[in-house]
Design a protein around this nucleic acid. Structure first.
Lengths: 371, 371
DNA sequence: CTGAAAGCGCTTACAG
DNA sequence: CTGAAAGCGCTTACAG
C-alpha cells in the first residue's frame, strides 16, 4: 500500500520497506512465485525448463517493477551467505591492507562479498561470535594472538578459516604465508655479490617482547642464511627496535625512535662498522637510512641499507630502498580462492600451509662494498 | 539428525548445516519459540517481562546447545541488515584506506558491520545492484565517476548514501570532505612566515586530463591563497604531473616519472628559481624532493618542499616531509556516524556537506628562505 | 507472563 | 512445463 502511494507521489517517497517482492512480480507476470524464482535464479541445472515466452514475461515484469531479489532471504533459505569475513588486528599496516585488497579482488571475481572486521585483544571472541551469527562462508584471519579458540569456535560452526601472514605452523585450517626465507636469501646473495660480508641486522623488538626465548622469524632466517654463506654474525651485529609506526603513539620521529639507537649501536660495533644493514621491515630501514646519514654516511656509497616488505614509502624514499618483496596481494588472493573452493565440502586442506615465494626489489639503497 | 551423529562422533563432524536453531533451544528449555526470542533479543522496551527463572532456563539451554542466532534471518525479518557498504575505486591509495579504517571503527562501535566493495568504471552499476540486493543499511562512496545513477538507484531502494573526499557539491545525499583550503592556507602562512614568496606548485595532471577547462581544486585553492597574500604566481610557476603510484604500471622511478620534469621546469623558471615547492600530494612532494637533490639542492637549506595528505612515507622520508594533514579517519568516522544516525528515517541531511578542517604537520622539509 | 499463529522473502522438492 | 506447499530461522502483534 505504502508503495502505491510512493509511486503516485514520485520516487522520493519510495522507501526501503517498499522493495518489490517476488510475489508481486509473479502476480504481474501472471505466474506462480516458484516460476519467478526459477527464471530469476536461472538454474539450468535442474530439469526445470521454462518456455521462453513465460521467461520473457517474468523478466519484463521484474524490470518494470524494478524488482531486486533479497540476497539476505536467499541466504537464509540456502544456508550460504557467500560472504567471507576478514579479521585483522592491524588494518593500518600497509602490507595487511594489500593482502585485504588481493582477497577482495578475488572475492568479487567469484561473486562473493567481503566483510571487514577489526580485532583487538578484547574483541576477538566477540567478533568470532559475530561471524558465526552472520553465517559467513569463510574467514581470513590476520591476528597476532592465540587463535586456538577462534579455530575451535569456527570449526564448530563449520566455517573454514585460513590465516594469512602467520609464521607458525598451526594444527587447524589453512595457513597462507610468504616464504620470507627466499627473499632473505636473495637479499644476502645480492649483498654478497656486491662484496659485503660485514652485514648487520636490525630485528624486531616486538617479537622478543612477546616471547623472549625465541628468535624473531626473519632474524632466524637471516642468521641461517649468513651461516649458509659462511658469514659471521658476531655478538652485537644484530640489534632490536620497537618503533611504533601507526596510530596515536606513532614514534617515527628520530628522537622518539628506538631505530636510531639500534643503528648507532651497529655503526659503533667493535669488530668494525658493517658495510650493509639489513632490516626486518621497511619502516625500520628508512629510519636507519636517516640515522646513517646523520652520522655522515652516504647511502649507498658508504653503507648499504636493505628493507623488507616493499611498502610505498620504500619506492618514494631517496634513494629508493632495496627491499624484499612479499607477495601480499597474492597471499590474499590465494587465501580467498582456497576458501571459495572449499565451499560445500569439509575444509580439510592438505597441505596445511601454502608458502608463496618472496623476492627482492633491487633499488638504489644498496651498492658495492666500499672497502 | 546429522547433528546427533556429529555430536556422537565429536565436534569434527559438526557442520554449518547443523547450527542449532531457536526451536531447539525452545524445546530444550520447555518454552515456546517466541519466549526464546524475547529472552535472547532482550527487548525490554516492549511490555514483555519474562520471569527470571524462565529467562535463566532459556539462557542455559542456549548455552548448553551452543546456540548462535542467525543474524541473516533476523535481518530478513526486521528488514534491517545493519550492514554498511563501502564503495571505493582506488583502495590502494593510502588516504582512502585510512578513511575506511575510520568508518570501520565507528561501525563496530555501533554494532554495525562493514562490507567492502571495490569499483571500476565497468562494475559500478553492478556493485550498486549488489548493494541493493544485500539490503545494505547505508553506503559510503569514494568513486571518481559520475555518481548520479548511483544516487538514483540507491534512493529508489531507500539506501542513504554519503560520499567521502568529493570536492564537488552534489544534489543528493551527504558529502563529507576535508576542507583542503584550511591546510593550504596554513601551509602558505608557514612558508610566508619563513620568508618565502617565490612559491611554486606542482598540480594534478589527472584532474586536467579529466576536465581540461577546470583548475584542479587544490591548485585553485593555492592560487586563491597566494592572491590573498599578495603573492604573485606567474605563468609557469605551476606545473603538472601524472605519476602512477599504485598498481602494475606504477611509475615511481624517477626515470619514468613526470614529476621529475615538473620539478625541473620549476627550477629553471625564468623569473628565478622558487624557494619553496608546494605539491598537491605527498607522493609528488617526495619525488620532487629527490629531483631537487639531483640538481644539487639541499632540502630544506636551499629549497623547501611541502606536500599534501600526510601519508606514512611523509614521516619516514629524509628529511621528514612538512605536509597538510587531511583528517582521513575522521572523515570516515563522520560518514559512518551520519549513516547510522539516519537509520529508520528519511535521509535528508542538511546541510548537504560536512567539511572537516585540515591542518599542517610541520616537519623538516621546510626551512627559512635562504635568500 | 507465555504461546500459537502469521509473516519476512526466498527456494526447493513434489505433484500435476 | 508450472504451481501449491512446505520450509529456511527468525520476530512480532495478538490472544489467552
Amino acid at each position: 500500500m505504502t508503495r502505491v502511494i510512493g509511486l503516485a507521489l514520485g520516487n522520493e517517497l519510495c522507501h526501503h520497506q517498499d522493495m518489490i517482492t517476488m510475489s508481486e512480480v509473479a502476480r504481474r507476470a501472471g505466474v506462480a512465485r516458484s516460476t519467478v524464482s526459477h527464471v530469476l535464479s536461472a538454474r539450468h541445472g535442474g530439469n526445470v525448463r521454462i518456455p521462453e515466452a513465460t521467461r520473457q514475461r517474468v523478466l519484463q515484469a521484474a524490470r518494470e517493477l524494478g524488482y531486486r531479489p533479497n540476497a539476505l532471504a536467499r541466504s537464509v533459505r540456502t544456508g550460504k551467505s557467500r560472504m567471507i569475513g576478514y579479521l585483522v588486528d592491524d588494518p593500518r599496516y600497509e602490507p595487511y591492507w594489500n593482502t585485504i585488497i588481493g582477497a577482495l579482488g578475488e572475492a568479487e571475481r567469484e561473486g562473493f562479498t567481503l566483510k571487514l572486521l577489526s580485532v583487538t585483544d578484547e574483541t576477538l571472541e566477540q567478533r568470532i561470535e559475530q561471524c558465526i551469527e552472520l553465517r559467513l562462508s569463510g574467514l581470513i584471519v590476520r591476528v597476532s594472538q592465540d587463535k586456538r579458540p577462534l579455530f575451535e569456535e569456527a570449526d564448530r560452526a563449520g566455517i573454514p578459516v585460513v590465516t594469512v601472514d602467520e609464521s607458525d605452523p598451526q594444527p587447524f585450517g589453512l595457513r597462507v604465508a610468504a616464504d620470507d626465507a627466499l627473499g632473505i636469501r636473495e637479499a644476502l646473495a645480492h649483498l654478497a655479490g656486491l662484496g659485503h660480508h660485514r652485514i648487520a641486522f636490525i630485528s624486531s623488538g616486538f617479537h622478543r617482547q612477546r616471547d623472549p626465548q625465541r628468535t624473531p622469524p626473519r632474524e632466524a632466517m637471516f642468521r641461517a642464511e649468513m651461516a649458509a654463506r659462511g658469514l659471521d654474525v658476531p655478538e652485537g651485529r644484530v640489534t632490536y627496535e620497537t618503533m611504533l609506526v601507526y596510530g596515536r603513539e606513532a614514534g617515527i620521529g628520530l628522537g622518539a625512535s628506538t631505530v636510531l639507537a639500534a643503528t648507532d649501536a651497529l655503526l659503533e660495533h667493535p669488530d668494525g662498522r658493517p658495510t650493509a644493514i639489513f632490516c626486518w621491515r621497511d619502516e625500520t630501514a628508512l629510519v636507519a637510512l636517516r640515522a646513517c646519514r646523520l652520522q655522515g654516511l652516504r647511502v649507498p656509497e658508504d653503507i648499504s641499507v636493505v628493507g623488507f616488505s616493499d611498502i610505498i614509502a620504500a619506492r618514494l624514499s631517496d634513494p629508493p630502498l632495496t627491499t624484499c618483496q612479499s607477495p601480499w596481494e597474492e597471499m590474499g588472493r590465494t587465501a580467498m580462492r582456497r576458501l571459495i573452493h572449499a565451499q560445500g565440502e569439509e575444509f580439510n586442506p592438505s597441505p596445511r600451509a601454502i608458502l608463496i615465494p618472496s623476492g627482492l626489489a633491487v633499488r638504489q639503497s644498496s651498492g658495492p662494498n666500499p672497502e
